[in-house]
């Protein structure tokens, strides 16, 4: 079992197909109003129309698939008034259902919107890194699903050794807030974190 579980996303080859999202929804039997994983489209660029009617542009777009990053400094845990939100022995940020009162402070504090309120349960739910699959020696549902092999998981240090450590890119939040266990290979047209070059292109899908 992992001690510091982390995700690696190859953003350069991600087609934004969202198979990871649907595999997660099926595995966790989620209703449409709860998403444990989201694929954000980041896009921008300008168009110029020439006098002859031809067009020139510098349009770019890429997708960022994000679930809970099981952060090293999880702000959701710090903001939980009942200690329901905790890191388990495998480094997975988890909800203790006996303690959770569904106050949603964790949801508001998390820059990745990872904790999700389940109105039917009256409690918070979230990505548990497919703990049951890990115990069986299987990869998380999202990783096993990726048709383009763009999602990977593993022990943080091993992923760093294999893929290297890269700075975070737009539109991801500053890593200093929570120290996410998230590694990425940036897209070839990636904008640096905090860039105003682009915008989120699919707010309705998040």
């Amino acid at each position: 079992m992992l001690k510091r579980p982390a995700f690696h996303i190859d953003i350069d080859i991600c087609t934004g197909c969202k198979t990871c999202m649907v595999a997660c929804m099926d595995k966790n039997d989620l209703p449409v109003n709860i998403l444990f994983r989201r694929v954000t489209e980041y896009t921008g660029g300008e168009w110029v129309t020439n006098p002859d009617g031809t067009c020139e542009q510098d349009v770019f777009a890429y997708y960022v698939s994000i679930s809970c990053n099981h952060c090293e400094n999880p702000i959701c845990i710090r903001s939980c008034p009942t200690t329901a939100m905790h890191k388990d022995e495998n480094g997975i940020v988890s909800v203790d259902y006996d303690k959770c009162v569904g106050c949603r402070y964790c949801e508001w504090s998390c820059p990745y919107r990872a904790p999700q309120y389940d109105p039917e349960l009256g409690k918070m739910t979230k990505c548990d890194f497919c703990r049951d699959y890990l115990l069986e020696g299987k990869p998380p549902a999202c990783v096993a699903a990726c048709p383009n092999r763009a999602l990977h998981f593993g022990e943080y240090d091993e992923l760093v050794a294999r893929y290297g450590k890269t700075d975070i890119i737009a539109p991801l939040p500053d890593t200093s807030i929570t120290r996410p266990n998230l590694l990425i290979r940036p897209h070839r047209k990636a904008r640096p974190a905090g860039s105003k070059d682009g915008r989120v292109g699919n707010p309705e899908e998040l």
Binding site: D29, P31, V32, N33, I34, Y97, E120, L121, K123, T125
Partner: peptide, 12 residues
């Protein structure tokens, strides 16, 4: 459907 209970089981 809207509550995510597909098989009469609670989320947990």
């Amino acid at each position: 459907c809207g509550t995510g209970v597909f098989y009469g089981l609670k989320a947990a």
